[in-house]
Write a protein that binds this DNA or RNA. Structure first.
Length: 300
DNA sequence: ATCCAGGTATGCA
DNA sequence: TGCATACCTGGA
């Protein structure tokens, strides 16, 4: 992707990142900045710098190969975040085949698209903030929260605040981070988690249906957010979050017109099976390519 | 200016 | 169940 100029990675600190599944170009971009996580940003030289948990890293393509620099934390944390222990090509191949031409098309356009592994607390925080907001705005909220309440991992690079840290933050301070009505939810969840230590981690260990049942009892967490938290924060690939984009995709490509959100979610899980969450990410990526016209808008 | 954006909670047929 | 409405705020 980057041919002529070698990016500005200090050579002694950067190294090639060997991944089981290649991750380059627009697939890398869609993975890091496709709405599943909100903490990766472009560097001036077309690389990526991001933070997940206690790991801050910079990624860049040099003559068609991915290189990484660890700015804080360990390279093991980075590979964990990139979920490279799974074979994403093979998982995609297990989604519906020739009987589903649309998924086939998505798969060919984004080969190796993957679901990143995020700390569950971070996924919960970000998706609590996601209600009726665009990705850019969510990223901005996350950045402000991190800068203001999170631990500094490297100069100017802050981790998201943990829930125990958030427990000491007032609703007014949260609103000051531009969270709007979401501030009340974050505040309430912080209070709940403060008096229920280990609750989130226990939830992550439950099977998908039970875990979801628990999550939706949290204020501000509905079906969609719960599915996002379980998919991106607990590796439950059968979770199938349905938002307006997916609704649009299911109408356009699967003929599910005027169906309640609930039914669309039900259909998705039945049709796509144990890796419905990966299918969802493919559908989302494809839909984001489409220019938005009046017809598409009206659907929501 | 006016509208809308990766939803959720609530109230009412 | 199904549908309508309020909820914050910044950017187009």
């Amino acid at each position: 992707m980057i041919e002529e100029a070698d990016p500005v990675l200090p050579r002694e600190m950067a190294g090639p990142l060997h991944l089981a599944t290649p991750l380059l170009g627009h697939v890398l971009a869609e993975t890091l900045d496709g709405g599943q996580c909100f903490r990766w940003n472009r560097t001036p030289d077309q690389g990526w710098c991001g933070i997940s948990g206690g790991c801050a890293a910079t990624l860049v393509e040099i003559r068609g190969a991915l290189h990484a620099r660890i700015d804080a934390g360990t390279s093991a944390q980075l590979t964990e975040h990139l979920a490279d222990d799974r074979d994403w090509i093979e998982l995609a191949a297990r989604l519906p085949g020739p009987t589903d031409p649309h998924i086939d098309r998505c798969r060919r356009h984004f080969p190796g698209l993957r679901i990143l592994r995020q700390p569950i607390g971070e996924a919960l925080l970000c998706f609590l903030c996601s209600a009726t907001k665009q990705i850019v705005q969510i990223k901005q909220m996350a950045e402000t929260l991190a800068r203001r309440f999170g631990r500094e991992l490297a100069p100017g690079r802050h981790a998201l605040p943990s829930w125990p840290q958030l427990a000491h933050v007032s609703e007014a301070e949260l609103r000051d981070c531009k969270l709007g009505f979401r501030a009340r939810h974050v505040r309430a969840v912080a209070e709940f988690l403060e008096s229920h230590e280990g609750w989130l981690e226990e939830t992550a260990d439950l099977p998908y249906p039970a875990a979801k049942e628990r999550l939706v009892t949290l204020p501000g967490v509905g079906e969609k957010v719960a599915d996002c938290v379980l998919l991106f924060g607990a590796g439950k690939l059968e979770a199938f979050p349905v938002d307006v984009w997916i609704l649009r995709a299911m109408q356009r490509h699967y003929g599910l017109v005027d169906l309640p959100l609930r039914h669309v979610a039900q259909f998705g899980r039945a049709h796509f099976g144990p890796f419905a969450g990966l299918a969802q990410q493919y559908l989302f990526a494809w839909e984001r390519l489409q220019p938005r016209d009046k017809r598409a808008k009206r659907l929501s």
